[in-house]
Design a protein around this nucleic acid. Sequence first.
DNA 1: AAATATACATAATTTTCTTATGTATAAGAT
DNA 2: ATCTTATACATAAGAAAATTATGTATATTT
Lengths: 110, 110
Amino acid sequence: MSNSKLYKGSLNTIILKLLNEHDKMYGYEITQKVKALTQGELNITEGALYPALHKLEAEGLLDVEVAKVDNRLRKYYKLTESGTKETVNKLEELAEYIKTMQTLMNPKLA
Amino acid sequence: MSNSKLYKGSLNTIILKLLNEHDKMYGYEITQKVKALTQGELNITEGALYPALHKLEAEGLLDVEVAKVDNRLRKYYKLTESGTKETVNKLEELAEYIKTMQTLMNPKLA
DNA sequence: AAATATACATAATTTTCTTATGTATAAGAT
DNA sequence: ATCTTATACATAAGAAAATTATGTATATTT
């Protein structure tokens, strides 16, 4: 994923936000999109991504739709209604996290 | 620590920065300082803190000095030279993390 | 006298990720 | 034609970081 441990716990937020933005995506597409957007900074590994997608689906935040393109399997994921709500929560949590960490790193301003 | 999973992986950064700011601190003091600075948002649990301090010490980033105050034990930790260097790295990593996540959350601006 | 705060510690478990491995098809390079 | 890389999924073993629970001990507040 990255040499920095700070990304631990961020994967679900990233997945949900990308699906919120792009309506429907498949796993491999997500890895490529993240790599492109971050200019290589962040590389989602398959061993992290696929279990995360399965868990989000099991929790009812994502729906799956299987497709065959060029004789190859694709599993398109999209947000459920509850997934859209959870995306909002995750974005709020990220904003709060950043605010809190900036407070801790810059205590003079607190 | 917090209901948000995003703090996973942030504890070392927080410890190092506090010690960089305050020169020497003991474990319990760190938990109270973090609680105060974040107004209760972040509560470092003992089960996370003490093993983290021991590990940072084992890695040579912290030095320990035992003291007895009011008949109670205190273990004061301070940064080693290598700990000070690592603090700079951690702060750079945090800045990079925030930048990357903001790019992902706000792709219009990328 | 009882409850809370101060101050340390560790063990069992859970969560999240890395690393390694596996299957299969398509496309590009030699 | 063959080899490598890319596309596309998956899981299993292990590591890392946290949670939750428990334990010890002293000081302070109710």
